[in-house]
Design a binder for these strands. Structure first.
Length: 470
RNA sequence: CGGGAAGUAGCGCAGCUUGGUUAGCGCGCCUGGUUUGGGACCAGGAGGCCGCGGGUUCGAAUCCCGCCUUCCCGACCA
């Protein structure tokens, strides 16, 4: 079709494309205060699906939800030296309240290790209280220098898990369990985003952690995005907040803690991992509507058929939307549904209907099928599964095509202009990291040669994944 | 915070160089009509502290000073 593109093409200006999609798919707007974000209903519906998928997995892993306060005494932050150093530059601090200057400034949480640590210390007495597995859904504030909708906003929504364990082994195993069975499982099965799993090099670790694990996804421009992260905090926070338990032998022992989080950034990752020049492309599992029934024109017979189909789909367990044609021309409405990334479109028009047919269209591939009215519901269910699987495969093929094994830092710098480079960690080192930094690249993660997650960065034969990132 | 660009209707922009009727255009929005199988068309209409503050001037969207905000590229980062 000779219709001019609605969006800036990805190949022309990827950041502009991203902003266009966020605006035109009605996902979010900038808030009035720098870096803040208004999440619009369609964007929030996607977030709600992400939330429920992650929340279910967290509960299966045995953690319970709780809620801790937004305001934290400033003194808490300074109890863990690296932590305060890491977060100080981006804190929002309340100095006045109730019309008076506060005796001790209050920090708006940038993350909750400190308050939660304080309460863990109160709640944990015995080894029988361990492990203590907590999670909270909350907003946090980090005064970022360069905000971008969903990817880096001053205030963002997330889930943060915080756990306390009797041993380093137990803490480590739990962090790994969360990383694989909550985050990576969610990313693969729900967001349909393949990842590289690994640990961050020491320079990229979370402030106060002894080990940080990451799930790195590849965006359509070949850049990396950290989509979820899990930290082993060792005894650093336990020491700072006196999180002790009494062992079976009656001795006071310091706990080992973990923390792990995933945020509204996932929505940005979802957009950039699957979107195309016509807009969003949503995997059925996160799509607010898996199918939209579109009336080609406003006509009683057509509308009646649309309503029946919509009802049938809904009863069949498909989240379906009805487009009755009141909002303008067919072409315009189709363009809008494509922009929103609805996985399956069911087009009902007079020509097809005369033969008892409708046209079913896949958003991911653009394929169109003529389908008998009686078979629409079952086909949509099957297509939803196919699309979910095919999108994961397509994303994996894309990532693999843009990932190269290299044998020197020079080659890595070339390869990481447009994708990921895999290079032996020994060949990077501190000097290498500095050179990468000059090229706006980082070591995204370290993994074993078989792709599994190493226990620490001292293991032999580790591979560094090198890329530009968001 | 450094480098670059830009703030004029919901969005995208012109007008500014050379100050001067009532500040324009496209899209969107409202009303009516014709339409509808890939961004429809006609007619009528609503909508502006021209980013904010100060200055120059008879007169400022336009010139001068200061500030703020947004976007892009870095550093920080989920």
């Amino acid at each position: 079709m000779a219709v001019p593109s609605v969006l800036t093409p990805q190949s022309e200006d990827f950041p502009k494309w991203y902003q266009d999609v966020v605006a035109k798919a009605e996902m979010a707007d900038n808030g009035p205060v720098r870096g803040t974000m208004v999440i619009r209903p369609y964007g929030y519906a996607i977030w709600e699906r992400i939330q429920s998928a992650i929340d279910g997995r967290i509960k299966l892993a045995g953690a319970q939800n709780a809620y801790f306060p937004l305001f934290i005494p400033e003194s808490y932050l300074s109890k863990e030296a690296e932590h305060v150093e890491g977060f100080s530059p981006e804190l929002a601090v309340v100095t006045h309240a109730g019309g008076e200057r506060l005796a001790e400034p209050i920090v708006v949480r940038p993350t909750s290790e400190t308050v939660i640590g304080e309460f863990m210390a109160k709640w944990i007495q015995s080894y029988r209280d361990l492990p203590l597995l907590l999670n909270q859904w909350a907003n946090v504030v980090r005064w970022e220098l360069r905000p971008r909708l969903f990817l880096r906003s001053s205030e963002f929504l997330w889930q943060e898990g915080h756990t306390a364990h009797a041993s380093a082994e137990d803490a480590s195993a739990y962090a790994m369990r969360i990383h694989l069975r909550v985050y990576n499982d969610f990313l693969e099965k729900v967001l349909a985003v393949p990842t590289f799993l690994g640990i961050k090099p020491p320079s990229e670790r979370f402030a106060g952690a002894t080990n940080t694990m990451t799930c790195e996804g590849m965006m359509r421009d070949g850049k990396a995005l950290q989509m979820a992260t899990s930290h082993e905090l060792g005894q650093n926070f336990a020491r700072a907040f006196d999180i002790y338990y009494q062992s079976e032998e009656g001795q006071a022992q310091l706990c080992f803690t973990t923390s792990w989080g995933a945020s509204t950034r996932l929505v940005g990752g979802l957009i950039m991992a699957h979107g195309d020049d016509n807009g969003l492309v949503l995997p059925p599992a996160v799509a607010p509507w898996v199918a939209v029934v579109v009336a080609v024109r406003e006509d009683e017979e057509i509308l009646a058929a649309c309503r029946r189909l919509h009802e049938e789909l809904t009863h069949g367990g498909v989240r379906a939307q009805l487009d009755d044609g009141r909002r303008g021309s067919f072409g315009r409405r189709v363009t809008d549904w494509e922009m929103k990334g609805v996985p399956v479109r069911v087009e009902v028009g007079p020509r097809d209907l005369a033969q008892g047919l409708v046209t079913v269209v896949r958003r991911d591939t653009g394929e169109k099928f003529p389908v008998a009215l009686s078979e629409v519901a079952s086909l949509v269910l099957r297509l939803a599964e196919d699309i979910q699987r095919d999108m994961y495969q397509a994303a994996t093929a894309f990532r693999d095509a843009r990932t190269s094994d290299v044998t020197s830092l020079d080659e890595a710098i070339v390869a990481a202009q447009s994708g990921f480079a895999r290079l032996t960690w020994d060949l990077v080192g501190e000097a290498g990291e500095a050179r990468l930094k000059a090229e706006a690249m980082t070591v995204r993660c370290l993994q074993r040669s078989d792709g599994s997650i190493p226990a620490n960065d001292l293991e032999e034969g580790l591979i560094a994944i090198i890329a530009k990132s968001y």
